[in-house]
Computed example of a mutant assay.
Amino acid sequence: MSAPATLGALLAAARRRLQAAGLDTAAIDARLLVEAATGASRLDLLAAADRQVAPDAAVRLDGWLDRRAAGEPVGRILGTASFYGLDFALGPDTLEPRPDTEVLVETALAAVRSGRLPGVSPDGAGLRLLDIGTGTGAIAVTLLVKLPAARGLATDLSAGAVAVARDNAARHGAADRLDFATGDVWQPVAGRFGLVVSNPPYIASDVIAGLDREVRLHDPHLALDGGADGLDVYRAILAGLHDHLLPGGLLAVEIGWDQGAAVSDLFALAGLGTIEVHRDLGGRDRVVSGVMLSQSD
């Protein structure tokens, strides 16, 4: 693509190029890539559309547009993704955090702020939380940013993901309240928690080959593959939950859109109470939560 002379021309050309590639998100993708390539703000694109663009910025954008048109997500191209208003670095071993996962954060925050967790204050005082399969650390770090008195542990099977999550915790000032461990589900975990959250692999193994290329080609399969029916990791979490979730504590997990009933049944079989299915903005089942019952319940 020849280098347009102004921000406005560059943005228009980028949008047309991504639309021609058949991308439904062409307009927002073009804006994000132009902003990153040129250092312009969203306001600049509106109010300073006639600003001249440096040739090296246009060349950089040209390469990024090639990658986006080929199906690489914007977050992978830029190396960061926004989640709950915070920017998180990505790595080859992490998923790109997605807006749907914000429902999991909202569910956990609502439980804490409403006083539903025994011995926990609305600011998180008295809370130790666990994030299983932390990836970028987006869930755990966001919760600790929003709950400034809470502490937590974040785990992942991938050492590479743990390294990325550790860096993201430092980026957002949560490193002194968040510990990290590498291992499978409960293997690296000691102690008990008032809140356990997870966005585990939940896609059935034989479905992965048919996923959109953005997911299939760019997300790590380790973070996608949930076994034959997509429920393997939920079963593993529930199998060890009684040893690690305090009475009255909350388990909240992200699910696939069609897994609400199946995961709720698993929660019930594990003896959890107050089981709820929470929907995303599109009206689809997205999170299942349940409470650890005490001996007297």
Results as ranks from 00 to 15, higher is better:
A5L: 07
L7C: 00
G8N: 03
G8L: 10
A9R: 00
L10K: 02
L10V: 13
A14E: 03
R15W: 04
R15C: 02
R15L: 09
R17H: 14
L18P: 06
G22T: 10
L23Y: 04
T25I: 05
L32N: 10
L32V: 11
L32M: 13
E35G: 11
T38E: 01
G39Y: 02
A40V: 00
S41V: 01
L46E: 05
A49M: 06
A49R: 12
R51F: 04
R51V: 00
Q52D: 04
Q52I: 00
D56L: 09
A57L: 11
V59I: 12
L61F: 09
L61D: 05
L61G: 00
L65M: 05
A70Y: 11
P73S: 02
G79Y: 01
F83Y: 00
D87F: 07
F88S: 07
D93H: 12
L95S: 03
E96F: 09
R98E: 00
P99H: 06
T101S: 13
E102S: 01
V112E: 02
G115A: 07
R116I: 01
L117F: 14
P118T: 13
P118N: 10
G119M: 14
G119C: 08
V120G: 00
S121A: 15
D123W: 13
G124F: 01
A125S: 15
L127R: 11
L129S: 02
D131M: 14
G135C: 11
T142V: 13
L144K: 07
V145I: 12
V145L: 06
L147R: 05
P148D: 07
A150C: 14
R151H: 15
R151S: 04
L153F: 01
L153C: 08
A154K: 01
T155P: 02
D156T: 07
D156Q: 03
D156V: 00
L157F: 14
S158A: 02
G160Y: 02
G160W: 05
A161R: 09
A161P: 03
V162R: 08
A165T: 09
N168T: 09
G173R: 12
D176H: 14
F180D: 00
G183V: 03
W186K: 03
W186L: 03
W186I: 07
P188G: 07
G191M: 10
L195M: 14
L195R: 10
V197M: 05
S198Q: 10
N199K: 06
S205H: 15
S205N: 12
I208Y: 15
A209G: 15
L211Y: 14
D212I: 13
D212W: 12
H218G: 12
D219L: 13
L222D: 12
D225H: 14
G227V: 07
G227Q: 10
D229I: 13
G230Q: 03
G230H: 12
Y234A: 01
Y234L: 13
H242G: 07
L246K: 06
P247I: 03
P247G: 00
G249I: 02
L251F: 07
V253E: 07
E254N: 10
E254T: 00
E254P: 13
I255D: 09
D258T: 12
D258L: 08
A261K: 15
A261N: 08
S264D: 11
S264K: 14
L266A: 10
L272K: 10
T274L: 15
T274M: 15
I275T: 03
I275M: 10
H278V: 13
L281I: 12
G282Y: 04
G283S: 05
R284Q: 08
D285S: 09
V287T: 01
S289M: 04
S289P: 06
S296N: 01
D297K: 13
D297S: 15
